[in-house]
Amino acid sequence: MSKVQNNKAWWLVLPVFLLVAFSAIIPMMTVVNYSVQDIFDQSSRYFVGADWFRQVLQDPRLHDSLLRQFIYSFCVLLIEIPLGIGIALTMPTKGRWSSLCLIVMTIPLLIPWNVVGTIWQIFGRGDIGLLGYALNNFFHINYNYAANASDAWVTVLVIDVWHWTSLVALLCYSGLRAIPDVYYQAARIDRASNWAVFRHIQLPKMKSVLLIAVMLRFMDSFMIYTEPFVLTGGGPGNSTTFLSQTLTTMALGQFDLGPAAAFSLVYFLIILLVSWVFYTAMTHGEKN
């Protein structure tokens, strides 16, 4: 659609701008202020320049949780995107069944994140949980997310798949619905294989929603906090301590305002770069 140039449109955007600016810019300025000072209380604070940044950037704790975070987010995308596409392709397109599918699939999205943690905390326990009990007694796998680091890690991953694959599937489903029937009819006339239909019709049409899905899933898994916190509190050891939790412990637990603020800014810069890359890819994809 061709849009008209009209700078008066700013008046319509102004409420949103003011509201978000209030919640985004003032806190952001404060974080920047904190990050260059050593703060004991309001009256005794000292300017320290870039010291906190140096400390944070050279802190092995940050490196570890950053690495864990990237591996985790990568695994999340690797599982959820193909699975979501697959589910979307198998979903019925009309009738009662499709409504039912949609509703069931939306349920996990609407559960508060700490309750998601609680559900799996209960479900996975060896003594009172169905999953833990079954794994230990029927499959004879020694599974204990509270004591075994790799079990905890896998559990957090499974939780995320349980929680968010539906979002990817629903987005892909919406992309698929936008394909006119004519395309499929043409493919049938050409006797195209299922794979060819997928590769040349469905996948290209899903490209834009897939990009949104990848972006949302990457960002949200990158700031995951609640589920591992409820499940194991980031343990055992540090196996499920991701970036957000390291940061929260620093800021609220130890009240290290300066380092926490420096960490926040580094974290935010990473997010900013990644979302800019995705956004540019998205808008340029639309143009072509």
Partner: peptide
Amino acid sequence: WMSWTLPTAIFF
């Protein structure tokens, strides 16, 4: 409470 300093004020 925002703990302004001169360098950050100049920056912003």
